[in-house]
Nucleic acid binder design. Structure first.
Lengths: 127, 127
DNA sequence: GTGCGAACGATAACCATTATCGCTATCAAT
DNA sequence: ATTGATAGCGATAATGGTTATCGTTCGCAC
């Protein structure tokens, strides 16, 4: 359990107070706007530490990593390719089947990443 | 259908002749070793064109994109976090459930990415 | 043969992330 | 309270995969 410094608390507060999925740069900018003096490297280090300790979760997209508040229940993500919004979903059967598949191949699974790409309900209506 | 130039044929041949998952840099190095004069930008452009035309497939990992020969049947990937090897698997039920989940959320799914991380059978025995 | 558009090769630029380094805050022991 | 060790901080340089730029070349229609 790494040290929960002022800076890391500040990052954590911002993430917990929102439902967004933040990247490091967005977080740094927003914190500075709010009057906190914080370096970008500190944000990266802080996020890594917070994730290690299970205080935040992350989604690794192709281009960047995004962080969200930690929640009890595991879930995966749907990313809208139009507006970039991220929604969460959970499906126990998919989770279970992944383990079955891995086991069949003699693969000791330690994690997974499932992302659905497409057009979210909001964007779909507009088109 | 973009032009299938000599360079792109060369890339395609190399990918088709192997079961590896290549990244752009590996491909360029291997081609040069084999006596082909090809620029790294051409490899990137070629891979993008080949993928657009469905002649190769790709897996987007966190740090880089890897390309494999195109196969008829869609599949997902298991990545060994020790040796970096990539295995393929397919599970129709998982595929179907993804569509169900997306539909429930009013999400018009256009693609997905499922990667299982862990330790492959070979690495698991050694440890 | 000429013209044109697409692709090529070399290289610079981009951008998210990580490493470096000197400084500072924290905290336990004195 | 002072010291000393350690972890973290902030600024910035470096890294590394990918993309953009630009002048040149190739292939094909006319």
């Amino acid at each position: 359990m790494a040290k929960l410094t002022i800076q890391r608390q500040t990052i954590l507060n911002l993430i917990n107070a929102s439902n967004q999925h933040w990247d490091a740069d967005e977080l740094a900018r927003e914190l500075i706007i709010r009057g906190h003096k914080i370096g970008i490297a500190t944000v990266y280090r802080g996020l890594a530490a917070l994730e290690t300790d299970g205080l935040v979760n992350s989604v690794q997209l192709a281009d960047k990593k995004r962080y969200e508040r930690a929640v009890k229940k595991h879930h995966d993500h749907m990313v809208c390719t139009k507006c970039g919004s991220i929604e969460e979903f959970a499906n126990d059967t998919i989770e279970a089947l992944q383990k079955v598949v891995a086991h069949e191949k003699g693969f000791q699974m330690s994690g997974h990443q499932l992302i659905l790409f497409g057009c979210c309900a909001r964007c779909g209506q507009q088109s």
